[in-house]
Write a protein that binds this DNA or RNA. Structure first.
Lengths: 274, 274
DNA sequence: GTACGCTATACCGCTATGCGGTACGATTAT
DNA sequence: ATAATCGTACCGCATAGCGGTATAGCGTAC
């Protein structure tokens, strides 16, 4: 029976299944499936309905899920945002980048984002968009693939050899069929980054999306990467060198910005969950 | 022993304790305690050390916590941000407010934020800051009290009678000693909001912080509130009427903005967690 | 040097606890 | 009216999670 929520080995006395399963429930929500019934969640997680009922009940009790008043379905409660707050706060150096990002977004009439790696994808932790665009598809906390985005390419290029090997290793085990292609792509990106100082992605993520990417180091020595991109109608292929140079410049300024000490040691001005 | 993680009644067959406790572990991180040992977590949560060890082990396995390479302590993994992403995405109407918020932040030389209620506090879901300020103390996902902030006051003032009663009820049970004072404050805020169209908070949250607040409704009929404020050196008490009017104006524009249909129905451009 | 505080990890017996069948009544859709 | 849903309830079972206690490894301090 031992259907461990996470793969992992057979039996692990120290693994709390209920917790892992509950997190799986939370993670099974997505922007397009943000209101789900117990049945939906059962399907999405592959867990039996009665188990889902228990987990959801617990999550409702603890306030991380609430029942939509109208539809009666279950939805993530904004309280889940508070779980991520300490992470955001620990990356506060990105705040110094915000004005620069906004400036470049306006200049390029596209979107500028900052992301870090999780597994084989990049998680966005900050973003700025051109003021004339209504749509900002990727928001904070969203996840984009590493192997098909300029951000991911730049990240890979700037990563140390050991991290690179680890990434490639993960790709190999995760999707062996695409591995060789992915490896070639990423190694190519590494070369491009070394040559030009930025990575370009022309229509490899989405057909009509172009972007450039540059890596940086956050205050806590966490590697991250900027990108700047948008629909090809606005971000033309010809403009990429210019944008790449500007993004590299932005990263340079960000990197060397004298950040330490600019913020007074501030206590946590938040409050308990009450 | 039935030490239920959440208060609640004695025994609830459908309550998964391990899950609730694991969430308590995640929630016990804060910006100032973002690297903790098992002992720290045991102290913070009040759970026995061996239990913590099991929960943390599970959270590490599932990737929501990682071991800091240097210190060997435990820290939240950025992956927790992805849990909140669907919430952010469901509130995408706030994106139309961003340029306006930025504009007002620049004008006022302070900070403009947008927040929604959770329990007796407000959770920030968007923020803009004046470009000349380095510090942005409150970030997305952070939590500020309702009874001492202009945002909270405006929210309360705009809430329906039933929600107001529920809020007051919670205050009464949560902190009876302060209840009468809080009630008076909130009722006063309601009156102020009805009179002026905004709420002011002069040094009630922090001594040297002034702010104004105005409520709005997000696309999904969720009540929310803007605030605009900052240190009294920049946001003087005299400027509050002007800022209040401008914030009310912003809210008005935001409210009536024709948002529906401006975004093409977009698929989730994110990717699986791999 | 040794005694201490702090790590994290391991072990282990117990039983409460979460499990997942299956069944029910209420809604809503076909 | 039939057919899917929805969520809730029940219940016997076995094990999964519990929390005590014990151990081993570091650093620090005295």
């Amino acid at each position: 029976m031992s259907d461990r929520s996470n793969p992992g080995a057979g039996k692990d006395r120290a693994f709390v299944n209920g917790l892992a399963r509950g997190l799986r429930v939370l993670a099974s929500f997505s922007p397009e499936h943000n209101r789900m019934s117990l049945g939906d969640l059962a399907k999405a997680t592959g867990l039996p309905k009665s188990t889902i009922a228990r987990l959801v009940h617990t999550l409702v009790e603890t306030g991380y899920i609430y029942v939509c008043p109208d539809s009666g379905r279950y939805s993530l409660h904004p309280k889940v945002l508070t779980l991520g707050y300490p992470v955001m706060a620990s990356m506060d150096k990105r705040l110094v980048a915000l004005p620069m990002m906004q400036e470049l977004a306006d200049y390029s009439r596209g979107t500028v984002s900052l992301g870090i790696r999780d597994g084989l994808s990049m998680i966005l932790i900050e973003r700025s968009r051109d003021r004339t665009v209504r749509a900002l598809p990727l928001d904070i906390g969203s996840r984009i693939p590493m192997e098909t985005t300029s951000m991911g390419h730049a990240y890979f290029a700037a990563a140390g050899p050991v991290e690179q090997d680890s990434i490639l290793e993960q790709f190999k085990t995760h999707d062996p069929s695409r591995f060789k292609e992915v490896e070639r792509t990423l190694r190519g990106a590494e070369k491009e980054y070394a040559d030009k100082g930025y990575c370009t992605a022309v229509g490899i993520w989405e057909d009509d999306v172009n972007a450039v990417g540059v890596a940086v180091t956050l205050s806590n020595d966490v590697l991250a990467a900027f990108n700047c991109g948008g629909p090809s109608s606005r971000i033309t292929e010809d403009s990429l060198p210019d944008l790449g140079a500007r993004l590299a410049d932005l990263a340079q300024h960000f990197q060397t910005a004298d950040w330490v000490g600019q913020l007074p040691p501030r206590p946590y001005r938040g409050v308990q969950p009450t």
